[in-house]
Amino acid sequence: MTDTSPLLAAENLVRHFPTGKGQIVHAVNDVSLSIAPGETLALVGESGCGKSTLGRMIMALDRPDKGSVRLLGKDLARMGRRELHSARRSVQMIFQDPSASLDPRWSAEAIVREPLDNYRIGTPAERRDRVLYLLEKVGLRPDQAKRFPHELSGGQRQRLGIARALATRPRLIVADEPVSALDVSIRAQVINLLCDLRDEMELSLLFISHDIGVVSHISDRIAVMYLGRIVEEGETATVLNAPQHPYTAGLLESVPRPRPSQRRQRAPLEGDPPSPITLPSGCAFRPRCPIAVDLCSHSVPPLAATVPGRRTACHRAGETTLQETSHV
């Protein structure tokens, strides 16, 4: 492996779910992304845009209908059971709901120990030490090791979830909305902890979130999803300060700002996101798009590079400056 090869690469992933009534939910439609070692990629989008399904496929918890997920160059779908088991060691997950993702009948100690036992890491005595080390690393006291999840606060539970995810020394962590269930005054603690651990352990991070504020803090790159597709991707600061896709622009405009003196005059985007069951023809964003043209209704815009390191899926990308249109 050279430094340039990605840690994880997903290519042309497609995942459709049949509903009970013979309809199809188009959860993920042709998504490609890659994460370099040590990089943090944020996956941003609203509910139902397919970001969690994408996370599950990357975790090998769900199989794509089409496309491949390659971890260190190896296709997850082509792995045997044993190979997949050992591959899982290097990709771990942090969940949204810290209470539901911890078995209520297991103590903190047992929860962090589970992955160590599964991969037979060290001797039993070493595992005990490593559990205490991990708990300390995430800011839990040794006397909390015997506690059960319901005896911990929400923030402490999420710390415990992080300790479990770090136990196998993974290379990549998929964090699915890791702070959105936490109290506001606790979020900063957990975000800082994640950043510190990432830097210290040289982890890659796939950070799935709908919170632009958190994302702007934590990520190197950002991929914006809308109805199962990535519509814009690039370096976080550039995308957030100069969005090229009208959805990204509308999304950013919609985020309430902590500046009472700079109130918006109106809601930036009209309408609801359409259902992933009956996708609109052409560009999925067309019905809500303020700058849609004829072309948009019959051809799906490809996610194309506009400038190096930046991809946008819009027929009109680069034609207009979006800041102007969204303020009109």
């Binding site: 702007s216 300060n241 950013l252 700002r257 902590p258 500046r259």
Partner: peptide
């Protein structure tokens, strides 16, 4: 609370 909240404001350095 104000300082602990991660907010994005366009044009402002995070």
């Amino acid at each position: 609370l104000l300082r602990a909240t991660a907010e994005f404001v366009p044009g402002e350095e995070s």
